[in-house]
Simulated assay, not measured.
Amino acid sequence: MNLIEGILYTGIFVFAATGALKARTHQMDIFGAMVVAFATAYGGGTIRDLLIGVRPVNWVNDYLALGLVVSAVLIIFLLKTNLARFRRTLFFTDAIGLGMFTAGGIERSLAYGINEGYAVIMGVMSATFGGLIADMICGEVPNLLKKGELYATACAIGAVIYILLKKAGLEYNLGLFICVVIIVGIRIFSKRKRVHLPEI
């Protein structure tokens, strides 16, 4: 397993846990949690692969990825704590997942011949569209569209910086790490300081 696969698998687990936590806040049963976790973990990557022509899509025949989703749901099912702590955990796991999936989505797109500009878009979609689908299933306004939160914007900034660092010849692993840290940092900073884009 190479680094990018490790990042993607870690992202799958983190986003599946995020989906399971979201399902708990909506008092779903364990099957509902599986559905939301699956959508959160696979949604963005599935749309990305369909758009860039990858067949089969990333999760088909991948038992490790499926096992990570099931494991994340079972872990959340077994853990009991108060709702406020779950909400905080949900935010931080989501922020980490955003960073990992953005970097992973960019690298996967570049590997399939997508140019750098569209690889940035694919990275952002990989990171955000799974959460968008999960929020729609849960009947929430998607985080992607909420005022007052730099969500996709954080991914886009980190993605552009990653591409620039890559073009500058920065060491591969370090570039990936910086991309993830920047996205997580912007997401946390914008949430705490209420930084947001201007209204249209």
Results as ranks from 00 to 15, higher is better:
Leu170Lys: 14
Pro198Val: 05
Phe31Ile: 15
Leu145Lys: 10
Thr128Ala: 10
Gly117Tyr: 11
Glu171Asn: 14
Met100Asp: 05
Leu174Cys: 06
Ala127Met: 05
His26Glu: 14
Gly99Asp: 11
Lys166Pro: 01
Gly44Ile: 07
Lys146Asp: 01
Leu90Ser: 05
His196Thr: 11
Ile75Arg: 09
Ile133Arg: 01
Phe189Leu: 12
Asp49Ser: 07
Gly44Met: 08
Cys179Leu: 02
Arg187Phe: 09
Leu78Ala: 13
Gln27Tyr: 11
Ile114Cys: 02
Val35Cys: 03
Ile30Ser: 07
Gly113Cys: 05
Asn58Arg: 00
Thr18Ser: 14
Val69Ser: 05
Leu3His: 11
Glu171Thr: 07
Arg187Ala: 13
Ala65Ser: 13
Ala168Thr: 10
Val14Ile: 14
Ala20Tyr: 04
Gly67Leu: 01
Ala33Met: 10
Met122Glu: 07
Ala72Tyr: 00
Leu68Gln: 07
Ala17Thr: 06
Gly105Tyr: 08
Phe101Pro: 03
Val54Ile: 15
Ile96Cys: 11
Ile4Val: 15
Asp29Glu: 01
Leu145Val: 04
Phe13Ser: 04
Ile12Cys: 03
Thr18Asn: 06
Ala33Trp: 02
Leu74Thr: 00
Ala111Arg: 07
Arg87Tyr: 09
Val54Phe: 08
Tyr172Cys: 01
Val73Phe: 06
Cys155Tyr: 02
Gly148Lys: 00
Asp49Asn: 08
Val180Gln: 03
Gly113Arg: 12
Cys138Trp: 00
Met1Ser: 04
Ser109Asp: 13
Phe77Glu: 10
Thr93Asp: 08
Gly104Asp: 00
Ile114Gln: 09
Lys80Cys: 09
Val120Thr: 05
Ile183Met: 02
Gly139Gln: 08
Ala41Gln: 08
Asn115Asp: 15
Phe77Asn: 11
Tyr172Val: 09
Asn61Thr: 13
Met28Ala: 14
Phe86Gly: 02
Val180His: 02
Tyr118Asp: 01
Phe189Gln: 07
Ile52Cys: 06
Ile52Trp: 06
Phe101Ala: 11
Ile182Leu: 05
Ala20Asp: 03
Ala95Leu: 12
Ala159Val: 13
Phe31Val: 15
Lys191Asp: 13
Asp94His: 07
Glu116Leu: 15
Ile200Val: 09
Thr128Cys: 14
